[in-house]
């Protein structure tokens, strides 16, 4: 049975839980380190990255998540979750997991009045455009190392990327009923991780 954790310290975590359940994947809310045991992947949701980051540190979740991320454990960050994944957020001082080679700019589009929706091509999940919802959203200013860009706005700015076991999106797939990105995370991140673990156990 595949179980994916959803960091449930603050923000839109229940929407991710519901999306996973629609795919027939078990979801577990993660608030304390013990909730990470036995998970096959983790989603860090949208919310306020400063709030989530502080709670993560205070309840000793940052180090175990970081250690797992570095060992190949699949993690997907949406919006605030993407900020937490980034190694560099332009010098802002706030707690991060800091494992992905992306430079992220917070509130990159402005305030709430600049929040928007748009149809976006994300070739990794199929030809049909994806309705993307950006709410006071961050942007990937630049990528480094072996990071692969998955989607850009029409002006070329990066809004989705992956690096090995890590997936980052500026926008909120969990606010739509299009589950293709959740499916992509399960198929292209979680399944290979499980296969590798099974192989290791067998060996």
């Amino acid at each position: 049975m595949t179980t994916i954790g959803v960091l449930a310290l603050q923000g839109a975590f229940i929407e991710h839980v519901h999306a996973l359940e629609r795919l027939g994947v078990a979801a577990r809310e993660v608030r304390l380190p013990r909730d990470l045991d036995g998970l096959d992947g983790l989603i860090m949701p949208g919310g306020e990255s400063t709030t989530i980051g502080k709670l993560m540190v205070h309840y000793d979740l940052d180090e175990p998540i970081r250690t797992r991320a570095q060992a190949g454990f699949p993690i997907w960050g949406t919006c605030a979750g993407m900020i937490l994944l980034a190694k560099d957020i332009g010098g802002l001082r706030q707690p991060l997991i800091g494992v992905m080679d992306i430079i992220v700019e917070r509130n990159a589009f402005g305030r709430q009045l600049d929040s928007f929706e748009a149809d976006l091509d994300i070739p990794a999940i199929g030809a049909e455009p994806f309705r993307t919802i950006f709410i006071r959203a961050p942007l990937i200013h630049a990528v480094q190392g072996d990071v692969v860009v998955l989607a850009t706005l029409t002006d070329g700015r990066i809004v989705a990327a992956r690096q090995g076991n890590l997936l980052a999106t500026s926008f909120h797939p969990e606010l739509t009923d299009d589950d293709r990105l959740h499916r992509y995370f399960v198929d292209a991140f979680v399944a290979p991780f499980q296969a590798r673990n099974t192989a290791l156990t067998a060996a």
């Binding site: 449930a8 310290l9 603050q10 923000g11 839109a12 975590f13 229940i14 929407e15 949208g46 919310g47 306020e48 709030t51 919006c79 605030a80 709430q112 009045l113 600049d114 929040s115 928007f116 929706e117 748009a118 149809d119 455009p129 309705r131 919802i133 950006f134 709410i135 006071r136 029409t154 909120h172 606010l175």
Partner: peptide, 27 residues
């Protein structure tokens, strides 16, 4: 009250308005 632009870009839609509140949940 969303106003649409090209490429299906729309600001201040119901989804972005109600969506910000969704991001505040648990807080």
């Amino acid at each position: 009250n969303g106003h649409s632009e090209k490429n299906g870009v729309a600001k201040s839609t119901w989804t972005t308005k109600a969506g910000l509140a969704q991001m505040l949940k648990g807080g």
